[in-house]
Design a protein around this nucleic acid. Structure first.
Lengths: 157, 157
DNA sequence: TTCGTAAGTTGGAAATTCAAACCCTCCCGT
DNA sequence: ACGGGAGGGTTTGAATTTCCAACTTACGAA
């Protein structure tokens, strides 16, 4: 069956959000990346209801973003850890955190700081792999690859 | 009233997701950043139901992420555009798109390419503002600023 | 034996989502 | 004047999800 006229734009952002865009999923990933991968920790730290958490964890494991690891037999107890693919979502968390730090809080009451191995406090900058320059909206041009899906020129503020 | 024992971890990621983490919100931002800011374009390109879209748009405007702009009086017609704060969420979209491109598609069937002003195809890299090095999980140490909220050491794959 | 911990599952009420239809204002062609 | 059609929503009612509390299972400790 072909694309119906009501299909949305084909897009990797949409596909990614279909996996990790549900409520709590990225908070779960945050905790797991912080090393807090046990069920009860995830409940406490994310605020997710236990049943929703169980559903999210199944989905993230199925998607290959998290892996379940046994940390105790008798009684059997598991903990969740990020896979390679999960760790590669960390840049999304870092840029989101930075945005929240800058726009949703005044000044210095940041709930968490990150130290980089270079010795300084970590602040993320998104750069171009080719030239190393910081990504700016005006420097980017979208080129849709699917016939029928266009964009409407640049958007100035 | 103090923090009840069931409050989740204070976190800018959580705060950011409370604003833009609902279904369709980031897709709306994507379209608006592409210059497709009209209601019917947003319906078609994101797939959001019209009522949900109206709710999301109100929220994003209230949050100062989008602004409503009149592009025609008589009949009055509006279009939505990103504010400065909205544009600053673009790095989140860029890193999410890159993750989706790399993990959710095989090979070269990418639905959209970005050209950078340097002349090359744009691929995002998240780097440290201080040293310029690429952000890697092992190079980052989380330092929670709120008493009672800890992390459990590094997480290796 | 009873308590406590960890990792879920279950049941039912409450909140959201969805699709389709509807509304209102205007512009246009005849 | 009349009948579309476009654009930007709102309304309605059914289908899904979410939420919360309680329950379960499997152990280890006192």
């Amino acid at each position: 069956m072909a694309a119906s006229p009501k299909d949305p734009r084909p897009c990797s952002i949409a596909d990614a959000l279909a996996l990790v865009g549900e409520k709590y999923s990225l908070l779960v990933l945050r905790e797991v990346c912080l090393g807090n991968g046990r069920f009860d920790q995830l409940v406490r730290n994310t605020g997710a209801p236990r049943d929703v958490l169980a559903t999210r964890l199944r989905r993230l494991v199925d998607a290959g973003i998290l892996a379940k690891r046994l940390y105790s037999e008798r009684p059997q107890r598991f903990e969740y850890r990020p896979t390679r693919a999960g760790l590669e979502l960390e840049p999304v968390l870092l840029t989101l955190k930075d945005w929240g730090d800058r726009h949703l809080r005044q000044d210095g009451d940041l709930p968490m700081l990150l130290d980089h191995s270079c010795g300084e406090t970590f602040v993320p900058v998104v750069t171009c792999r080719a030239c190393g320059g910081e990504a700016r909206h005006e420097g980017l041009t979208a080129r849709p690859q699917t016939p029928g899906w266009t964009v409407s020129g640049p958007t100035a503020a």
